[in-house]
Simulated assay, not measured.
Amino acid sequence: MYVKINGKDIKDYDFDYTDIMQNTFLFHTKDCVGWRDRYLDWMCDLGWLTCDSGNGMFYKNIILVFEHWSNVGKGFFSNGQKLRDKILEDFMEEEGIFSILVIEDEDFIWVDGTPSYAEDYEPAFKVFNIYLIL
């Protein structure tokens, strides 16, 4: 599954971000807007992202791309860093959403804080592979 989010559309967490995510991932509810706990329940459960391969259930691998990441939360009074940090916290393993964080920067890819050449990068399987395009 490939999902692309335009960072320019995310001005705040509780309304813009949760609304975009619940619509993008087709939650079976529309009541996550303004409720982080409800949003995280859907994202952490992941039962709605399973498939049956014939040999048992498994999670779909999701490639989540945030384009214009540097514009997330950017406004007249904010550079957006707190909002970007809050979004990334949702995908840390302590929160229960298993992911690999990838930031593309010219020839390098930064994977969970470690730089590597793009051509040498082989993603490990996790439910969410997150790409931040600055």
Rank of each mutant, 00 (worst) to 15 (best):
L101A: 10
D45F: 11
M21Y: 03
I133G: 13
R38I: 09
L64Y: 01
I100F: 04
N6L: 09
D14L: 13
A124P: 15
K30C: 10
V33W: 10
C32Q: 04
I100K: 12
Y39P: 15
I133A: 00
V72P: 08
F98E: 07
L83T: 00
M1A: 07
W69T: 03
K82S: 15
V102R: 07
K4A: 04
D14S: 13
G96E: 08
E122P: 05
M92R: 14
I130D: 12
D52M: 02
R36G: 01
L46Q: 15
D52R: 01
W110T: 05
T18E: 00
V111S: 00
C51T: 13
D14F: 10
D85M: 08
C44Q: 15
V65A: 13
I130V: 08
Y13H: 09
E106G: 09
E104T: 00
D19K: 11
I20P: 14
L49A: 11
D12L: 06
K11C: 02
L46K: 09
E67K: 00
T50Y: 08
F15N: 15
W35H: 04
V102W: 01
D37S: 13
W69N: 04
S116A: 13
M1N: 05
D31G: 08
F15Q: 14
L134D: 15
E93W: 03
Y2C: 02
M21S: 09
V127T: 07
G54C: 10
D85N: 11
E94G: 13
D45L: 01
G34F: 01
D41R: 00
Y131Q: 11
Y117T: 06
R36A: 14
G47C: 02
Y59N: 13
G47E: 11
I20Q: 05
I133Y: 14
F66H: 03
N23Y: 00
K4C: 03
M21K: 04
G56W: 06
I133P: 14
D16C: 03
I10H: 14
G80N: 14
D112L: 03
D112W: 04
Y131M: 06
T24Y: 02
V111I: 04
I87Y: 02
M43V: 10
G47F: 00
L132R: 04
S78L: 13
V65G: 07
F77D: 15
Y59Q: 08
K30L: 11
G80D: 05
E122R: 08
L64G: 05
Y13E: 01
D107R: 15
K86L: 03
V3P: 06
K126I: 00
